[in-house]
Amino acid sequence: MQMRASINILIILVCIVFSSEIVAQTSPWLVSESDAAKINSFPVTPKNVAVGKNIFAQSCVSCHGSKADGNGLMKSTSLISAVFQKQTDGAIFYKLSIGKGQMPSFKSLKEEDRWALVNYLRVLVNPTMVPAAVDVKLDITTSESPNSVTAFVTASDSTKTPIADIDVHFYVKRDFGMMRIGHASNPTSADGKVTVVVPDDIIGNSEGNLTIVTKIENNFLYNDVESSVTKQWGKQLATYDEQFNQRELWGAQDKAPIWLLLLANAIILGVWSAIFYVIFSLAKLKKAGKIFTK
């Protein structure tokens, strides 16, 4: 009995030692008091939270996961845990600015945007900080010279009131994703419209067709909505497949360069006809011997 108790104690001891070691390994990331006390002068607004959400989607999701729970492409800190959220705004701001180990530094972002990201992280655990999102209607019209797309955003109810100052994103569809055109942020004007010029150097499909997509996304006031249009505004896709069907040294068996085929076959033919001449002579040799014995 005593033996078992002492073993239990030993196990507990080992556990304590090990767990303290684990704590030591993921040593606390110390932030100086002055940095931690830095005041976030940007209040939580739907607009800057949307900016934060955009940044999060671009730079943070890969590691921290779409739910920010640390389950992205690699194991990382959960940003929605109580431990994380306990920190001051200043501490979070400091950490994401400086980076540590696998966490890169985001100093390259504007200070304003980094605070917006902090705000977004707060909203993640406390969604009521911003009002609930509503549906809107997104229509597109196009005009030429210069080729441009106009997004028209209205309320989804029967009033069809144009909505101003709503950020619309413009994209061109590509093989593996959407390529942004226009600015990072394209807010609608008072009439609910925003226009973006489509650059004329974009390559479309073989007919020059481009699919232009407009989106309202990552917005806290409005639900996601998208709309697309296809126009023959692109450059025609030029392929060089024939380059890969030419006779080349790296070509397939049936694509050997002509000069090589000629050269190789001429040599083989020349040498082997001489060999066959010799073999033929052997037959003659035998014949010559037979005549003699007769």
Partner: peptide, 28 residues
């Protein structure tokens, strides 16, 4: 698409576009 750090861009050179495997951002 496995890269967590946005190292890789992949695309179709005929279409002059590459897409980042991490952020999904597509650029010329």
């Amino acid at each position: 698409s496995a890269c967590p750090n946005g190292v890789y861009y992949f695309g179709n050179i005929y279409e002059d576009s590459v897409t980042n495997g991490t952020s999904g951002e597509t650029v010329s």
